[in-house]
């Protein structure tokens, strides 16, 4: 049935009604998840991921301690119910380990680890729903959760998947598109425009690569705006909430407090 759907039809529509350069709906929920220091639930279309960040805290074992910076530990778990077909994946599944390693290496240059020597930052990523672009969602979610946890970052890390249908580039692929097209996922730092991750599992023509990369960088900026908005909104809610809890406290103080 899958192959029965046209990925990009002659009139420029994708199978879900989007056009080439339209990203899927993004849903961001930054509310507190029980014991985590910072967490985020993010959805790109139907792909949904919950990221919880704990730390920085003391490393569990000596072997994981690094004397001059914090150790980043990423654990990824894919829920058995995340796909249509129920399928339990072990934690040591090669693909899961690989994805966790990709997330870790993406954030190593982003997190200011040198501020927390001999400590550990745990990032728990839980994939709740999958519909293409899982890695992209994980990375964006991790960025948000880290910010939510108050861990100092150099920049946002914004990830996006793009693919090529013949010569037409497509952004933010759904599962259906991912199965059909050569694609790559990149993570970029919007302030500097640097790229911290490029992964490709399919063969992509070298002529297409440059075009896709440029496009993905632009899409990264769009994502950045969206994520910034969500953070801003969350902060305002928090501030507003504080006002209610401590009625005597002046507005300037709250602002100051937040800045601190």
């Amino acid at each position: 049935m899958g192959s029965r759907v046209e990925v990009l039809n002659d009139h420029g529509y994708r199978s879900d009604g989007r056009r080439q350069f339209e990203l899927r709906d993004i849903g961001i929920d930054l509310s507190q998840q029980n014991f985590a220091d910072g967490s985020a639930i993010i959805s790109h279309g139907l792909t949904q991921v919950l990221v919880s960040v704990l730390g920085p805290r003391e490393a569990k074992s000596r072997s994981q301690t690094i004397h001059d910076r914090a150790n980043i530990n990423v654990e990824l778990n894919v829920a058995a119910f995340s796909t249509g077909e129920r399928r339990r994946r072990s934690k040591n599944d090669k693909r899961i380990l690989e994805m966790a390693a990709a997330i870790r290496s993406t954030f190593e240059p982003v997190i200011q680890t040198n501020l927390f020597p001999r400590s550990q930052i745990d990032i728990y990523v839980q994939v709740l729903q999958q519909d293409g672009g899982v890695l992209q969602t994980c990375i964006n979610g991790t960025t948000l959760a880290l910010i939510n946890a108050g861990i100092p970052l150099n920049d946002f890390a914004c990830a996006i998947t793009c693919g090529a249908h013949s010569t037409s580039p497509l952004l933010d692929l759904s599962l259906l598109e991912e199965n059909d097209l050569p694609h790559m996922t990149i993570a970029m730092l919007p302030k500097t425009g640097r790229v911290t991750l490029v992964t490709m599992e399919t063969r992509l023509h070298v002529d297409r690569f440059e075009e896709l990369l440029g496009l993905a960088l632009e899409a990264g900026n769009v994502l950045h705006e969206e994520m910034k908005l969500a953070i801003d909104k969350r902060s305002r809610t928090l501030v507003a909430a504080m006002k209610i809890t401590w009625p005597g406290v002046g507005e300037d103080l709250v602002e100051k407090d937040f800045d601190h």
Binding site: D16, G17, D25, L46, G84, E85, D131, S174, L176
Partner: peptide, 18 residues
């Protein structure tokens, strides 16, 4: 949808209205 093995899978797809 039903797979070759006879399992029934629920498929959810998005649709963006414009």
């Amino acid at each position: 949808k039903k797979t070759v093995r006879g399992m029934v899978i629920k498929v959810l797809r998005e649709r963006y209205l414009r």
